[in-house]
Amino acid sequence: MLDVNGVQKIYRGKDREVEAVRDLTFRLEEGELACLVGPSGCGKTTLLKCIAGLLKPTSGSVEVAGKAVTGPPRDMSVVFQEYGRSLFSWLTVQGNVELPLKEKKLSKERRRTLVTEALEAVGLADSARSYPWQLSGGMQQRVAIARAIAYEPRVLLMDEPFAAVDAQTRADLEDLIRGLWQRFSMTVLFITHDIDEAVYLGQRVLVLSSSPTVVQDDVAVDLPAERDQLTTRSDQRFTELRARVYSEIQNAKNGQAASAPAAT
């Protein structure tokens, strides 16, 4: 569903070049939920922008559903970290969710159905007529998620979406994402710097090295599909996986290669 092939990105400054991403290759099957973790400053956002078609990679290619990405693909939606800045303050919650659908030239009834369904799915059915700035941070991010879902994407990209909300809200939102993923059967790529979050959410965790970035490790998360904050996080296996991802990231920071490539 999502193919990333040898993506490299070099930023050319005035008199120096910065290689942010060196050589990234990975593949997400249809309906997979994968998390991407890496040490801070490892080019996660650059990678996301390349996948979303917002940046052109220096070399390599990205394919979504078999089609090469040259601009933002139609069947992909993105949730950014900065919820406050990715919502239109001058549109209501409903208007924000509906805007991309208008551009898709959907009928009015269809738009209304999608908006209502999406808002109901994120638990904001009552706030449709509010403005984003009347909501709390967590609720604003829910609006952004509703907008992404209403777009009916086959691939959902999330760029550290919960980095700026408090811990309590964050747990709720994590469960929300798991629920939505199961309900709408999308392929989800979730970028985060939080190891616990990655292991808790994903079916798979891709560990990135520090910049210039390569895939350091690919960890399959063999936890049961039904997860909840209390039992899953206290699960022995959860702790093991977390320890493994943690040590990989430490290795990545110290610049060592993967100890045991992609086999668990």
């Binding site: 917002l54 993105v78 900065e82 551009e103």
Partner: peptide, 12 residues
């Protein structure tokens, strides 16, 4: 970020 959002959702 808002400009990127518009690009992602094909708002033009």
């Amino acid at each position: 970020v808002l400009a990127d959002t518009c690009r992602c959702y094909g708002v033009r």
